[in-house]
């Protein structure tokens, strides 16, 4: 999200922001993930949450974000890890996905990075850390492997949720 022209030599990246796109990086379990910063709306502290009955466990419930009811998903659980206990420093990252808002709980928010787009590679076939469906790409960066998340799949790759959306008015128990 910078106005400056990309440098010719993309190997050297200026952290102060004249190269590539900006990403937010965060941690889940041992892995570092990144998200396009333009999708991120704000960070809020994890406060009391209202559970929504009969949904998969990774949906923690809904919160009130200045008058809008937004769902909160625990990405750790979504990726199939064990739940971590929440504490006063647990944050919810609120994201714009399409015209909807979603809150994501991650282990720890790390940094904002400038990465040239061509550094992001398609995910390798053998990626095992999380299901490939959630991956949009990977990026090697300062000896670390960054994983770019495909946000769209967070919602719609879940068969039970699709079922709800398709049969809006019929009642299907989700278990």
């Amino acid at each position: 999200m910078t106005d400056q022209k990309p440098q010719e030599n993309a190997d050297v990246i200026d952290i102060n922001g004249n190269e590539g796109k900006q990403y937010v990086s965060f941690k889940i379990a041992e892995e570092t993930y990144i998200l396009d910063i333009r999708k991120v709306r704000e960070f809020i502290t994890y406060e009391r949450i209202t559970i929504i009955p009969n949904l998969p466990e990774y949906y923690k419930g809904v919160i009130n974000l200045r008058g809008s009811i937004i769902p909160v998903m625990d990405l750790r659980l979504r990726f199939g890890y064990e739940q971590l206990d929440y504490h006063e420093r647990t944050v919810i990252m609120t994201l714009n996905i399409g015209d909807k808002l979603l809150g994501l709980v991650v282990d720890k928010v790390l940094d904002v990075l400038h990465l040239p787009e061509d550094r992001i590679q398609p995910p390798p076939e053998t990626e095992k850390v999380i299901e490939r469906q959630f991956l949009e790409g990977i990026c090697e960066w300062q000896d670390e492997m960054l994983i770019l998340i495909n946000l769209d799949t967070l919602f719609d790759q879940d068969p039970s949720l699709q079922l709800i959306e398709e049969t809006q008015h019929s009642i299907t128990p989700i278990q």
Partner: peptide, 19 residues
């Protein structure tokens, strides 16, 4: 921001900001 949940007609915000 979500979808219809069986058995739930909607939500409301309580005086303390909770849902």
């Amino acid at each position: 921001n979500f979808f219809q949940i069986p058995g739930i007609a909607g939500a409301t915000i309580l005086g303390d900001g909770g849902v």
